[in-house]
Design a protein around this nucleic acid. Structure first.
Length: 564
RNA sequence: UGGGGUGUAGCCAAGUGGUAAGGCAGCGGGUUUUGGUCCCGCCAUUCGUAGGUUCGAAUCCUGCCACCCCAGCCA
């Protein structure tokens, strides 16, 4: 045994599976599923569930189905099924030969319902929706039985068939399970199994006008597919007795449902309803706005599937409600990007520097490493000349004590190039604004090093003026200013907590010429600035980059302390 | 006495009767041609709380407290 061995992450669900394997409960099978309703885009919370379910299948040599829980035609659309398929695939998972749909089992479910009716365990109810609610009772008061509860089996069969054949209008009747109107668990108070909905389904069209309810359908779907461990979120815990009741009454294959706490993340919102509101009210540019916690938004932002999977792994799986820190997500991102991103130089807020003792027409080609973390990434040539751009924030006229970037009279290193010393600050006579800096360079420092032992602490990134390519850069921050945007005792809404600086567009950035050939999906580290990727808004001659995330910035911390 | 859950550090989370893993955040230091990365160190005498059982309790028992979910013909 090696002490340094990495322990595979485990959790209570895997413990249950281990036990089931020991007792041979499912003949050694492990079969999970990810069952989204196609009524919205997937978000990071779904990613946790996806990684959990597909991850278990992978580790236990089992299977995981991708199954659309499409039992409500009024909310579901093909646009959503397509985006979900794309997202799960992008996250890196496979689900076997085909995508599955609950709607493929509608006929089978109907037959099962007929069985329950024949068994005297289900009945057609003529009560209105309002009446059903009244009859259900309250949390503390028992419900009462519907007057239609004791219809004959023949009447129920006949009525149910007529429901199916379209003889009744929406809402006029439902099929209910006959269980216990006095149960402490409201889910057991004669739950509705089918409702009438004359609505076109995205897959079955107008074939059906009755649709199964979640509680009735879901266990059947799992049973039909031979799922062993049906993993879902906590709010379904008190639906489990009903899940079990249906399968037991039907006497069919019985998976086991296991519940875990869904992911919450600070500085964002996760409910589909709220995400939809952000999109509809145009607070963001769409479901794939890089500030959204959606998979498509994160993909556009530059997140990698690896980083998301690592996050899902590290955040853990348990039953306690919790809110993960978005800093952990960002840590996983940086960890991955640090290994793979090509380093390039890009000046976001340019200020011009003229190197007065450098020949006017000279251009040098210098060698630059592409990734200090990965020698196989190789090197590239960069151009150096008399006029360059450096970052506005890398120069201070009045530098604080610990500031070791450029300041009047101070010497810094230009990464991969030369040492320069600031000799003169040129300002606009009227506005006092700094126009350019005059510096001198030390020809003996080529490559950014001298052997005289001189201490040059600061290293700046730069771009040659005549070689620079202009680009637009979009800087993103948390979408909300508050850690818990939904928690507002003052009566404001989460919309009012939107961070006005969550998107800052910089239009005059100057980047290395090599970036002209950047492709979608390429990851870069703009040296000392952060990780960036090309945005699909880029067109010929107009580069647009998204900041995926900044680099950790210990100088910012020091400066903050200095101020206080 | 409606029913179902959960409480371990600022945030997650292991631990299943033998004397509190790990990660993130934070703090201190070292290396560094990115104030990045990397490396080293610090960070719970205590597990919601009060009792009890035991040689020994985060783990077992009892009471209490706090928080979350459920009254869709949504999922």
């Amino acid at each position: 045994m090696n002490d340094n061995e990495i322990k595979p992450s485990t959790n209570f669900i895997r413990t249950i599976i281990d036990d089931d394997l020991k007792t041979n409960k499912y003949q050694g099978r492990v079969h999970t599923r990810f069952p989204p309703e196609p009524n919205g885009y997937l978000h990071i919370g779904h990613a946790k569930s996806i990684c959990l379910n597909f991850g278990i299948a992978l580790d236990y040599n089992g299977k995981c189905n991708l199954r659309f829980d499409d039992t409500n035609p009024v909310k579901e659309e093909d646009e959503y099924v397509n985006s979900i398929i794309e997202d799960v695939r992008w996250l890196g998972f496979d689900w076997g030969p085909m995508v599955l749909y609950a709607s493929d089992y509608f006929e089978q479910m109907y037959e099962y319902a007929v069985q329950l009716i024949k068994k005297g365990k289900a009945y057609v109810d003529d009560l209105t929706a309002d009446e059903i609610r009244e009859y259900r009772g309250t949390l503390k008061m028992p419900g009462k039985e519907s007057p239609y509860r004791d219809r004959s089996m023949e009447d129920n069969l006949d009525l149910f068939e007529k429901m199916r054949s379209g003889e009744f209008p929406d809402g006029s009747r439902v099929l209910r399970a006959k269980i216990d109107m006095k149960s402490g668990n409201l889910n057991m108070r004669d739950p509705v199994m089918y409702r009438i909905l004359h609505s076109t389904h995205h897959r079955t069209g107008d074939k059906w006008c009755i649709y199964p309810m979640y509680d009735w359908a879901h266990g059947l779907e799992d049973s039909i597919e031979g799922i062993t461990h049906s993993i879902c979120t906590l709010e379904f815990e008190d639906h489990r007795p009903l899940y079990d009741w249906y399968l037991d009454e039907l006497d069919i294959y019985h998976p086991q449902q296991i519940e875990f706490a869904r992911l919450n993340l600070n500085y964002t919102v996760m409910s589909k309803r709220k995400l939809l509101q952000l999109v509809k009210e145009k607070h963001v540019s769409g479901w794939d706005d890089p500030r959204m916690p959606t998979i498509s938004g994160m993909r556009r932002r530059g997140y990698t599937p690896e980083a998301i999977r690592e996050f899902a792994d590290r955040v853990g799986v348990a039953k306690a409600n919790s809110t993960a820190d978005i800093a952990l997500l960002e840590h996983c991102l940086r960890e991955d990007l640090n290994k793979r991103a090509k380093r390039v130089m890009a000046v976001l807020k340019p200020i011009k520097v003229i190197i007065t003792n450098y020949p006017e027409d000279k251009v040098e080609e210098l060698e630059a490493e592409n990734n200090p973390e990965d020698a196989s990434a190789g090197t590239r040539k960069i151009y150096f000349s008399r006029e360059i751009y450096i970052e506005e924030d890398d120069f201070r006229e009045d530098a604080p004590s610990k500031y070791f970037r450029l300041a009047p009279g101070k010497e810094v290193r230009l990464k991969h190039a030369y040492y320069i010393t600031c000799e003169k600050v040129i300002k606009d006579d009227k506005t006092g604004e700094i126009i350019e800096l005059h510096c001198s360079y030390d020809p003996k420092s080529k490559g950014g090093w001298t052997d005289d032992g001189r201490k040059v602490k600061g290293t700046l990134h730069w771009v040659s003026v005549q070689h620079a390519v202009k680009a637009e850069v979009r800087l993103y921050e948390h979408l909300f200013v508050k850690e818990f945007p939904e928690d507002n005792p003052d009566g404001t809404t989460f919309i009012e907590q939107i961070n006005p600086e969550s998107l800052i567009i910089l239009k005059d950035c100057m980047v290395e010429p090599g970036l002209k050939t950047a492709k979608l999906g390429d990851r870069y580290q703009f040296l000392r600035n952060g990780y960036f990727c090309l945005d699909p808004d880029s067109i010929e001659d107009k580069l647009v980059f998204n900041r995926t995330t900044s680099l950790r910035d210990s100088w910012a911390k020091i400066e903050k302390k200095l101020e206080s």
